[in-house]
Design a protein around this nucleic acid. Structure first.
Lengths: 122, 122
DNA sequence: CAGATATATTGAAGAGTGTCAATATAGCAT
DNA sequence: ATGCTATATTGACACTCTTCAATATATCTG
């Protein structure tokens, strides 16, 4: 009796089309972190902010970014906050102005992780 | 009179903090395409699907993917559709089953574009 | 053709995201 | 202190994304 049940289950789980034991090689935490980081990059305004910070190596104040972007000041602040929370940029206050700058090591580390992922897809 | 107004405007647009002529080097279309592509990658299920397709080089049927993922069948179909719309994968029907596979050239091209972007951030 | 199975599509519900006006905060200048 | 300027935060709204049950479609089998 248990024999019959076992056979049924086995056939059900392998109906002739499947490669068994297929599983993603990237696990729960790792894949979550990676997709979160990709999500931070996946916005035109944020990509453009990173690009502008990369140009003016030192520091760029928010009013410059705002002037160069097609969104209003609170939206710029919002995206800056997300980039900062992701550890990709940081800022420093000088008088009235706040100057943002890239955290190049963090970007380098993200680049490395992304490349590793792409290489895993060969 | 116009002189005074001109001076006011000039001072307003350059209050002493700003680097003038700052603009993103990546334009509207290009940055939109890139962020869209990143958005497709920015999901754990989709990353895991790509990873599994990369493992079984040839073809993987949907039931295998479904068995290995923590979401139901319609959700798997949904993510497969997004990946296909992005040009990263394609599929082929064989009898009852549909086999999905990576489009490696597309992935390679995306990798190249991403790398170029990261290099631009130096 | 009728029944069975694999996958796709539809439609709805809930969560999350992007944007901005309004307001708050922080620092300078008078 | 008062006012002024740069940036941050809040709150609301619209929109998109993710997920799934239900249903539809496609294909095989008898």
């Amino acid at each position: 009796m248990p024999m019959i049940k076992l056979i049924e289950i086995t056939e059900k789980s392998s109906p002739g089309c499947c490669s068994p034991n297929l599983a993603p090689r990237i696990g729960g935490d790792e894949v979550r972190t990676l997709s979160d980081d990709l999500g931070v990059l996946a916005h035109p305004i944020r990509l453009q902010i990173l690009d502008m910070l990369a140009q003016r190596d030192g520091h760029v104040c928010v009013c410059d970014l705002e002037a160069a972007l097609p969104v209003k000041q609170p939206t710029v602040s919002h995206h800056l906050k997300l980039l900062r929370a992701a550890g990709l940029i940081d800022c420093e206050r000088r008088g009235l102005w706040v100057y943002y700058f890239l955290l190049r090591p963090a970007l380098e580390s993200l680049r490395t992780r992304l490349l590793a992922q792409f290489d895993a897809l060969r």
